[in-house]
C-alpha cells in the first residue's frame, strides 16, 4: 500500500458536549489544493487546529508523510513542513513587520539552509516581497490594515518553507482587488520555485474559505463539513451540484 501525503482517520474533537469535528476521514496527495468549506461553526478551523497540534483530538489519527503527528508539539509539526495561518490574524503587534517574519525564519526548518543574520533579514524581506507588503517592512504590525495583516500571515507561514500549507480564510475581510492579488500569490506559491532567497516547495494546500467563487478557481478538490461531519468530497463541479451541500448551505425545504 502506498502512503498518502496526508492521511486523516476518524478525527474527532469535542468541546464539552459539543462535537466540533466528528469522525472525519480523508487523505490528500502532495500536489493537491484542497478547499474546505462549510457553514459557520461547521468545525473547519477546529479541523485545521487538530492537524497543527494546537488542539489535541479526542480520537483519530493524522499521518503526514507516513508519520503519525497526533500528540506531537506544534513546533515539531511546523518543522516537519506544515505551516498554517490564523483566521483572526495573530501578528506580533508591537514588533516591526520584518521581525514578525524573522521569527519564522529562525525556526529550525528555515535555518536548515544555513542562514546567518544578514541573510536572515534578506530572506524575511523576500517573504514580505512575495506577500506584497515589503514596502512596510519597518512599520509596526499594529499599524497594518486588515488586508495587509492577512498577507503578513501568509508571509509568516511561507517563510517556514512548508510542504503543506493550511490557510484559514485567506480572503476574509479583503476587498475584491486585494482578493485577486491574494489568489494570484497563492497560485504562484503552489507552482513552487524560488522567490529571491525564499524557496517554495510548491506546497500542497488546504484552504478554508467562504468566498466560494474565488475558491473554485484555485482548488481542484473540495471537502464540505457540516456540524463537524464530512458531508461531501469531490471536484468543485461535483460539489456545487451535490444536493446535500445545497441543503447544508440553504437549509431544508429551499431546494
Amino acid at each position: 500500500m502506498t502512503q498518502s501525503f496526508l492521511q486523516i482517520k476518524g478525527l474527532t474533537k469535542n468541546f464539552g458536549g459539543l462535537r466540533a469535528v466528528n469522525d472525519v476521514t480523508f487523505s490528500m496527495e502532495r500536489n493537491q489544493v484542497l478547499g474546505l468549506i462549510g457553514p459557520n461553526g461547521a468545525g473547519k478551523t477546529t479541523l485545521l487546529r487538530l492537524i497543527t497540534g494546537i488542539l489535541k483530538p479526542d480520537a483519530g489519527h493524522v499521518c503526514f508523510m507516513g508519520k503519525e503527528i497526533v500528540g506531537r508539539k506544534t513546533w515539531d509539526i511546523v518543522n516537519m513542513g506544515i505551516a498554517c495561518t490564523f483566521q483572526n490574524m495573530r501578528p506580533f503587534r508591537r514588533l516591526p513587520i520584518i521581525a514578525n517574519v524573522m521569527v519564522s525564519c529562525l525556526s529550525p526548518r528555515a535555518m536548515k539552509r544555513g542562514e546567518w543574520v544578514k541573510r536572515l533579514e534578506a530572506k524575511a524581506m523576500d517573504a514580505l516581497e512575495f506577500a506584497g507588503i515589503s514596502d512596510m517592512a519597518r512599520e509596526k504590525a499594529s499599524t497594518l490594515s486588515q488586508g495587509d495583516l492577512k498577507r503578513l500571515e501568509v508571509a509568516r507561514a511561507v517563510a517556514t518553507e512548508p510542504e503543506l500549507l493550511l490557510l484559514d480564510e485567506p480572503f476574509g475581510g479583503l476587498s475584491p482587488a486585494e482578493t485577486d492579488l491574494m489568489a494570484k500569490s497563492i497560485r504562484r506559491l503552489h507552482k513552487g520555485g524560488r522567490f529571491g532567497r525564499l524557496h517554495s516547495e510548491g506546497p500542497a494546500m488546504i484552504i478554508v474559505e467562504h468566498k466560494l467563487q474565488w475558491l473554485m478557481k484555485i482548488v481542484d478538490r473540495i471537502i464540505v463539513l457540516n456540524f463537524g461531519n464530512m458531508i461531501a468530497d469531490g471536484t468543485p463541479d461535483e460539489i456545487v451540484k451535490d444536493p446535500r451541500v445545497i441543503e447544508a448551505y440553504l437549509g431544508k425545504g429551499d431546494t
Binding site: 511546523v78 498554517c84 514588533l95
Partner: peptide, 23 residues
C-alpha cells in the same frame, strides 16, 4: 535573534509556536 523570539513570545506565544519555534 534570541531577543526577537523573546519579544514575539511576549506578544503571542501560540503564534510563535506555529512559526516553528520551541517556545
Amino acid at each position: 535573534k534570541t531577543g526577537i523570539i523573546f519579544h514575539a513570545i511576549r506578544e503571542d506565544e501560540l503564534a510563535v509556536r506555529t512559526s516553528g519555534i520551541n517556545t
